[in-house]
């Protein structure tokens, strides 16, 4: 599987709806040099299921993870897929960027296409406060039930109540506003 094949298939299905498609390459290996390819693209949440179905038809599909970040008034999710495992040097990473507004953070669940995505979707619900429509199981996974905040959200006023400064100098640094700078 090559990145161009994946990109062509996606563009055929989604056309203009696949925004900013990009193939990033990296040279690897010392004696036998290879080009490793990563596909990056932006899509809308309404096109997600179609895009994932397209990938599933292309070859063996694996979802590595969904990563996410609080980007001000929107939440950005990145779906990291790997298409085409099972053949030497044949895997292409496909990364879809998806952004949803904070006042309506609903994304369609891809569990119906790829049941293995359930773990990572459940994780995103509790960490970022997004919702997945059609997810079969939306209970908490990693966080304790009594924790009522979404720790990756930057607009959680209550989060600091939960953070314990177990190391004294670290708390001092934070008071001066240096932590994370």
């Amino acid at each position: 599987m090559r990145a161009q094949e994946v990109l062509t298939a996606l563009q055929e299905k989604l056309g203009e709806r696949l925004r900013a498609p990009e193939v990033r390459t990296e040279a690897i290996g010392h004696k036998r040099t290879l080009e490793r390819e990563l596909v990056w693209a932006e899509i809308d949440r309404d096109d997600l299921l179609e895009a994932v179905r397209t990938l599933r038809e292309l070859g063996p599909l694996h979802i590595s993870i969904i990563s996410g970040v609080d980007a001000g008034d929107r939440i950005e999710l990145i779906y990291h897929f790997a298409v085409g495992y099972g053949t030497p040097d044949g895997e292409v990473m496909v990364n879809f960027r998806l952004s949803v507004p904070k006042n309506d953070p609903v994304v369609p669940s891809i569990c119906a296409v790829l049941p293995g995505a359930l773990t990572t979707e459940r994780e995103k619900i509790e960490f970022l406060g997004v919702q997945f429509s059609g997810i079969p199981d939306a209970r908490k996974l990693f966080l304790p039930d009594e924790l009522e905040v979404h720790p990756w959200r930057k607009d959680e006023p209550k989060l600091s109540d939960y953070v314990r400064y177990t190391v004294a100098w670290e708390a001092k640094k934070d008071e001066k506003g240096e932590a994370g700078a």
Partner: peptide
């Protein structure tokens, strides 16, 4: 492990 919401020390 310090400075986290889930670590109690």
């Amino acid at each position: 492990f310090y400075d986290s919401y889930n670590v109690m020390g």
